[in-house]
Design a protein around this nucleic acid. Structure first.
Lengths: 193, 193
DNA sequence: CGCCGAGTTGAACTGAATCAAGAAACGTGG
DNA sequence: CCACGTTTCTTGATTCAGTTCAACTCGGCG
């Protein structure tokens, strides 16, 4: 998959760019091909990069009392970054790891800002991405805040079935805020009420 | 407090607008003065309004099994809206209620979009607000997902002390995802471990 | 074949919910 | 300024969903 194709996918999923903007984006960004399990951002690092997933999947996670807690999943045609580091320019509390063999497009914050300043459409595109992220976070809070483990799982099945198909249960459990054991019991139809 | 002053506050808190944009914003928006407890958005309503809080405070909440669950607090110089309804144009799952005697600036989505299209600065301003909201939501998930009731409360004390000073405990409890009783025990130093 | 990571199952424990009652604070009208 | 009702918060006893810890199963792979 080459960079032209990837940018085409971005345009298909978000919005059309002018030729000029497209060319500049091409010059400013970098395609990276990664093995399953590769870590692209580490805790403590100032990560000023955002990644568009052209192929594969990734997750953001952090360590809390040395427990691995997944915060975010991203699949094809979505962006992932260390939100805090990218937007606030602080050391990343998160790791970002690729879950499958993946192809990412890497864009730095400075370059993205340049493009946003110069091209109105690119600014709109980035606003779209941010808005979308905000809405997903909102949805997730409602789910995490006041539902039982069973409801949280059912909910995830409804709104993000892709996650359950492609991701290890350990990661899903921490994403839902429950233990792996509880998730396992929930999934076993025998334990259903 | 008149509309000129309010817009000045917006500019101080976010960014400076051109004269033209400022005038248009003035024409497009409406100042509303409200008593404590007034509901400005109801569940089921298509609410295409966003509110800038010039004075006072507000909360967004929803009913889950007829329990009142607070989802968001907003104070002076911040915006509040039914995120879902405003951005996705669906019926609002939320109510929005004013917690103190308040002065709000009401802006409709269509008008906001017009301003965003016409004035680059206004688009930047709205992107700032959205980014800020996204970051707050992110922070909140980390807190809700894997902390004890005590930690959640301590956390809130650190990052949003304003909430604890100005809001009823019932609302704080549901915002944290715990019961009023648990919150009460946590606040009592005798029960500290 | 035997090891290893991922998931399942079981039993005991615990933090927070629920239910129920009472105390404080708050506002309104006499 | 006090008496009253209402709302807000506290305290106690009991219950339960989900955690923890530990052992076991299963499927892939060198």
């Amino acid at each position: 998959m080459d960079i032209e194709q990837i940018i085409e996918n971005i345009e298909l999923h978000y919005l059309k760019l002018t030729n000029e903007c497209r060319c500049e984006l091409k010059d400013f960004s970098k395609v990276i091909t990664l093995d399953r399990g590769t870590v692209v951002v580490r805790e403590g690092q100032f990560s000023d990069k955002t990644f568009f997933i052209a192929k594969g999947s990734a997750r953001a996670f952090y360590l809390k009392n040395s427990k691995d807690i997944t915060d975010w999943f991203a699949f094809e045609n979505h962006f992932i970054c260390s939100i805090n580091s990218f937007f606030l320019n602080v050391p990343s509390p998160h790791f970002i790891e690729v879950l499958e063999p993946s192809i990412l497009l890497e864009i730095s914050r400075d370059r993205a800002n340049e493009l946003s300043d110069k091209y109105r459409e690119f600014d709109r595109l980035s606003k779209m991405v941010i808005t979308h992220t905000m809405l997903q976070l909102q949805e997730r809070i409602v789910s995490v805040q006041f539902e039982t483990a069973q409801q949280k799982y059912d909910n995830l099945l409804n709104i993000r079935p892709d996650i359950i198909r492609r991701v290890a249960l350990t990661h899903i459990a921490s994403y839902l805020g429950i233990t792996l054991e509880t998730l396992s019991r929930i999934r076993n139809p025998k334990n259903r009420i």
